[in-house]
Amino acid sequence: MKAVITVTGKDTVGIIADVSAVCANRGANIREITQNVLGEYFAMIMIAELDGLKIPFADFVDELAALGRTRGLDIHTMHEDIFNTMHHI
């Protein structure tokens, strides 16, 4: 399964590095990154393959959300199926 990780907030040094580090540590393989900075606002959508995930998905969601809180970012991790069912017949 894949997850969609969205990261938004004030742009600072090392956001991609920090999010990627959590993914690497937990065995999530990053497949795609779309990222933009508008003024000081950082926005990223990351799609990660979770077949090798070493911890339960719910814990992975919590860990990324916690990282977001410590860095003043909004990080949401969602199962890809919610997007697939909504936008594909």
Binding site: V4, T6, T34, I45, I47, H76, E80, I82, F83, N84, M86, H87
Partner: peptide, 12 residues
């Protein structure tokens, strides 16, 4: 295949 616009629409 997911596209950015669909993802943003759902999240919004």
């Amino acid at each position: 295949m997911l596209n950015t616009q669909d993802i943003l629409e759902t999240i919004n």
